[in-house]
C-alpha cells in the first residue's frame, strides 16, 4: 500500500513537471526517468532472473545510433516509423548477443556480455563513418520540443512499469523466479530455461533500446561513451542501490542517483566518491536496497 502511494505520488509529481516548461528540470528529470527505464529493464535480468548482464548499455546505444542514422541519412524522422525500428533493432541485437552469451553461465556470462559491449564501443569509437569518439548529432529530432519529449519519456516509464509488473505476475514471471532460485531444477521440471532467459534478455534489450531512443530524442546527440561498459556498470549500480528484485526500487533509485549527482557536483568535484560510499553502505546494510526501506511484498 505504502509502495503504491509512493509510486503514484512520484508519477503524478513527475507528470506535473511537464507543465512547468522549465528547460533545466525537463531535461534533468527526463534524463533521470530514462535511467529508471534502464534500471527497471536491467532488473528484469539481474533481480528477477539472476542474470548479471553488462551489455545493457549496448542496446541503449545501438538504438540511439540507429535513430541518428535514420534521421541523418534517410530523413526518416516520424516516431511512428523510427521508434518501432529502433526498438526492434535493439531487440534483434539482444537476440544475437543473448543467444551467444547464454551459452556461458555465471561469471563467464558476465564476461561475455562485457566483451560484446567493449567490441561495440570500439566499433563506434574508432569508425569515422559512425561519428568516431565525437558521436553524432540527430539532425531532426522525432519529437520536437522539450516538453513533448518529456511527456513521451514520462509515458514510457509508466508503460514500462505496468508492462513489467504484469509480466512478472504472469506464468512467465514465475518461471524467471524459479530460474533465479534453481536453474537446474527448473530444467528437470520440464522448462527449457535457456529459451526463457533469452526471451528475458530480448525484452530487457528492447526496453534499453527504447531508453536509448528517448535519450537521443531528448538530447539530439549520441556518443560512444553511452554504450561503453561504464554505462552498463552505472545501471547495475542503480539496480543494486534501488533494490534488485523489485521494479519500484530501481526506478526510484535512478531518480535518487540523478539528484545525488546533480547536487553532489555543487559540493565537490569528487561526487563519484559520494555515490561509491552510498553504494557500499547500501550493499552492506541494506541488502534489499533502498526498496528494503519501503515495506512491500517480496513479489513485485
Amino acid at each position: 500500500m505504502r509502495r503504491r502511494l509512493l509510486l503514484l505520488a512520484a508519477a503524478a509529481a513527475l507528470g506535473a513537471v511537464a507543465f512547468s516548461g522549465d528547460r533545466f528540470w525537463l531535461q534533468f528529470l527526463g534524463k533521470a526517468m530514462i535511467g529508471s527505464i534502464l534500471a527497471m529493464s536491467l532488473d528484469l535480468l539481474v533481480g528477477f532472473t539472476g542474470l548479471v548482464s553488462l551489455a545493457h548499455s549496448a542496446f541503449f546505444g545501438l538504438a540511439a545510433y540507429l535513430l541518428a542514422g535514420l534521421t541523418n541519412r534517410f530523413d526518416l524522422v516520424n516516431p511512428v516509423v523510427t521508434l518501432p525500428l529502433c526498438v526492434a533493432f535493439a531487440a534483434a541485437c539482444a537476440l544475437v548477443i543473448g543467444w551467444l552469451s547464454l551459452r556461458a553461465t555465471g561469471v563467464y556470462f558476465i564476461m561475455v556480455t562485457l566483451a560484446f559491449t567493449q567490441m561495440l564501443f570500439y566499433l563506434f569509437n574508432d569508425s569515422p563513418a559512425l561519428g568516431g569518439s565525437d558521436g553524432l548529432y540527430v539532425k531532426t529530432r522525432p519529437i520536437e520540443g522539450r516538453a513533448a519529449a518529456y511527456v513521451a519519456i514520462w509515458a514510457a516509464v509508466v508503460l514500462v512499469y505496468l508492462l513489467l509488473s504484469r509480466l512478472l505476475r504472469a506464468p512467465y514471471g514465475r518461471v524467471l523466479e524459479g530460474i533465479r532460485g534453481n536453474d537446474q531444477r527448473m530444467r528437470s521440471l520440464g522448462y527449457p530455461t535457456r529459451r526463457y532467459k533469452l526471451v528475458a534478455f530480448v525484452i530487457a534489450g528492447a526496453l534499453a533500446g527504447l531508453a536509448g531512443y528517448l535519450d537521443a530524442t531528448l538530447y539530439g546527440f549520441v556518443n560512444p561513451a553511452q554504450l561503453g561498459w561504464r554505462q552498463s556498470g552505472l545501471i547495475l549500480v542503480t539496480v543494486l542501490l534501488g533494490g534488485r528484485g523489485t521494479l519500484y526500487g530501481p526506478a526510484l533509485g535512478a531518480l535518487l542517483l540523478a539528484f545525488i549527482e546533480h547536487y553532489g557536483e555543487r559540493v565537490t568535484d569528487h561526487w563519484n566518491a559520494l555515490i561509491a560510499a552510498l553504494v557500499i553502505a547500501v550493499v552492506l546494510f541494506l541488502p534489499r536496497g533502498l526498496a528494503g526501506l519501503v515495506q512491500g511484498t517480496p513479489r513485485a
Binding site: R166, R169, A170, Y172, R174, G190, Y191
Partner: peptide, 14 residues
C-alpha cells in the same frame, strides 16, 4: 505450471 503447453505467457496473472 510446467505442464502447460508453454509458460511463455506474459499477460494474465498466473
Amino acid at each position: 505450471q510446467s505442464r502447460l503447453p508453454s509458460s511463455m505467457l506474459f499477460f494474465r496473472p498466473a
